[in-house]
C-alpha cells in the first residue's frame, strides 16, 4: 500500500498506521493509560508529545554528525528534556491551570516516553532533517489519534459524555471504565482488535 504513495507521504503514514506507536509498537503506554479519562485531556497530551517529538527529531537529525555515538543517549535525553521543559512552561502560561493539574506529572514524564527516544535512536539519528520531521509528524499523529480513540471509548462508555458534552440520555455509564482497571481493559481489547485486523489482512493477501 505504502509503496505506491509518494515516499515522503509514506514517511508520515507509516507512523499513523503500520507503525502506530501505541497499538503496534507498544511504546509510551504509561501516558496513554493515565490521561485518557476524557478526550479533553487526551488531545493536549497528544499534541504536547507531538510537539516534543517533532522538535527533538529535527534537532537530533541536525546534530547527527556532531554527536559521538558513545554518548548519544545522554545527548538525546538533554535535547528532549529541554523541549519538554518548554512545552511544560508554555502549558502553564497559555492554558487554564486546570489543564496542567489534570495532566500532572505526565507532562514532565514525556522525557522518558519511549516513543521519543525510540524515534530519535531508530530514525532521526540516521536520516535527513526533512524525513525526520515528517517521521515525527507521523508518529505524533499516530500517538494523538490513538489517545483520542482510547479516551473517546472510555469517556463515552464510562461517563456518558464526549468532550464534556452529554451524548446519551437514559444510559447508565460504567464508571469503572474511567478508573484504572478500565484503562487496561480498553487498551488490551483495542490492541487485540488491531492485531485481529492485521492477521485478517495477511490471510487475505496470502
Amino acid at each position: 500500500m505504502a509503496a505506491k504513495e509518494h515516499p515522503l507521504l509514506a514517511e508520515v503514514l507509516k507512523g499513523i498506521f503500520a507503525e502506530n506507536p501505541i497499538f503496534v509498537v507498544m511504546l509510551g503506554l504509561c501516558a496513554t493509560l493515565a490521561v485518557t479519562t476524557t478526550a479533553k485531556n487526551a488531545l493536549p497530551m497528544g499534541l504536547s508529545t507531538m510537539a516534543v517529538l517533532v522538535c527533538s527529531n529535527v534537532i537530533i537529525s541536525l546534530l547527527r554528525h556532531v554527536i559521538p555515538s558513545q554518548v548519544r543517549i545522554p545527548c538525546f535525553i538533554v535535547v528532549i528534556a529541554s523541549f519538554v521543559t518548554m512545552v511544560e512552561l508554555a502549558l502553564k502560561a497559555y492554558f487554564p491551570p486546570a489543564l496542567s493539574e489534570q495532566l500532572g506529572i505526565f507532562i514532565p514524564l514525556i522525557v522518558v516516553n519511549c516513543i521519543i527516544l525510540g524515534r530519535a535512536e531508530a530514525f532521526a539519528s540516521k536520516n535527513t532533517v526533512l524525513r525526520s520531521f515528517l517521521d515525527g509528524v507521523g508518529s505524533g499523529l499516530g500517538f494523538t489519534g490513538a489517545l483520542l480513540l482510547v479516551s473517546s471509548i472510555r469517556e463515552v462508555l464510562g461517563n456518558g459524555t464526549w468532550w464534556g458534552i452529554k451524548v446519551a440520555e437514559r444510559f447508565e455509564p460504567a464508571a469503572i471504565l474511567v478508573q484504572a482497571p478500565g484503562a487496561f481493559l480498553v487498551l488490551g481489547l483495542l490492541m487485540g482488535f488491531f492485531k485481529w485486523m492485521s492477521l485478517r489482512r495477511r490471510e487475505k493477501s496470502s
Binding site: G182, F184, L187, G188, L189, G192, F193, K195, L199
Partner: peptide, 19 residues
C-alpha cells in the same frame, strides 16, 4: 485466541488485577 496472544491478553489480565 490468536489475536489476543501476547500483550493484549496481558493487559486484560492486568485490568482484573487492577480491579
Amino acid at each position: 485466541p490468536a489475536s489476543l496472544k501476547g500483550a493484549p491478553i496481558a493487559f486484560i489480565c492486568t485490568s482484573f488485577m487492577a480491579l
